[in-house]
Design a protein around this nucleic acid. Structure first.
Lengths: 231, 231
DNA sequence: GCAATAGTGTCTTTTAGACACTATCTG
DNA sequence: CAGATAGTGTCTAAAAGACACTATTGC
């Protein structure tokens, strides 16, 4: 099966990288951060943000991703969680490889993107061709976000620390891809102890000012879903 | 910070392994398969089942775990999913390492364990000390099983292909760690299209024989939970 | 006042939980 | 028939969804 038999029980370490699916909301759409690969393999092809682990400074794969995002997208701390690990002998032409993929969510305003034609923030529905199996990773990331958002505070990660209830409502609609009844949404968000009144108000050009809320806990999950039943 | 500076952007591949948290139900308890490590590091210490990737035969980390389980526990195909990847410079004394952990569920009857004092099937509530960060991995695995079981068919993976409704009911109770009302449970399982009548019956020593059901789909998730509200 | 968005109240249907009840087997 | 487990029916309370309604701003 192989031309150069290897000692079966010896340590063999595949190529090991980390990747991040960095998502944000812009213009009522879910968007993802891509960059053009400067070198082979897949030179010139769009890809997720990623890189190698630095053994001397990274305390884990999460920290490696944070460092890479800081260097490549000038990002502060944000919601970041491990997604899944992708592996196999063929996904990287250089050989057997492992990539630990992560899901990152940021408010658009906190994203400081360089003026660089090799950096792209694009709608997840209008993707260019991607390097490696990055299309699969991205699809899995969006599916995870959708699934988890139905019963968690995840979409609030796209908003600033203080936000209005209609803003939260809109974030859930964009992420879940469905219209949600404003009244039911408000009731659920408040009754579940998801958000608390900050005492402040916001008057952003619109007509009636809205109360500003904040999350009670940074990340929370619920038994009942925000999404409609037959979703 | 490091004594031997490394080229920061060069490929550096950590030690890479796969591990499996293999769970089953025996005697109304959740149990996990452990084995005693034959060599350093952690020689003689109990650990999860795991090993290295074989680049010439494994098509991915999942297949690597399947191969290792086949070799070490004589296991056929079973419910196996990726759990999470654990990493860092200190979890393995040999250096920066990555372990892709998996969650496996098997009916007890399908587990063929060798008569070997270095293989142990133990209650997850009564664990010996474990090597590496395997205790953390195991705790995460049980938490994932619990969480997912509340709104999925996962506990059915502990049963044979044909099972009675009371058996399914009991599996959910053991996994979730709570009493569930038999009537409500039955209604939910049937109304959601989770199981279908096989037409057969089982008369295992008890009094009234019970209908045998099978899953409609191998793995399914639901909006509503099987667990009680304030769980 | 009008337009527009923020926020409330309430009615109907569905679902959950509790639990009493019936059914079918073994001995 | 008694005991035990399998399975059904039904009542009540909570939650979801729909939607009419009121409130507060800018112009």
């Amino acid at each position: 099966m192989t031309e150069t038999p290897l000692p079966k029980d010896a340590a063999y370490n595949p190529i090991c990288t980390v990747d991040a699916v960095l998502l944000t909301i812009e213009g009522d759409c879910l968007k993802v951060l891509l960059h053009r690969r400067p070198k082979a393999p897949f030179e010139g092809c769009w890809a997720l943000v990623g890189g190698y682990i630095h053994r001397d400074e990274d305390q884990g794969v999460l920290e490696a991703v944070q460092r890479i995002l800081r260097d490549k997208a000038g990002l502060p701390a944000l919601h970041l969680e491990q997604l899944q690990t992708y592996s196999g002998p063929k996904r990287d032409p250089r050989g057997w490889s492992v990539s630990v993929a992560h899901l990152g969510l940021v408010p658009r305003a906190q994203l400081e993107l360089p003026q660089d034609p090799d950096v792209l923030l694009t709608d997840v529905e209008e993707l260019p061709e991607l390097a490696f199996d990055h299309r699969t990773i991205l699809d899995d990331a969006v599916a995870r976000l959708r699934g988890k958002s139905a019963y968690s505070t995840l979409p609030a990660s796209f908003l600033d620390a203080l936000f209005t209830l209609p803003e939260l409502h809109r974030a859930y609609e964009i992420v879940l891809g469905v219209k949600l009844d404003p009244s039911s949404f408000r009731r659920k968000a408040l009754d579940r102890g998801m958000i608390e009144d900050s005492g402040e108000m916001r008057t952003d050009g619109s007509r009636r000012p809205a109360k500003l809320y904040r999350l009670c806990a940074p990340a929370q999950t619920f038994d009942q879903t925000f999404a409609p039943q037959q979703w």
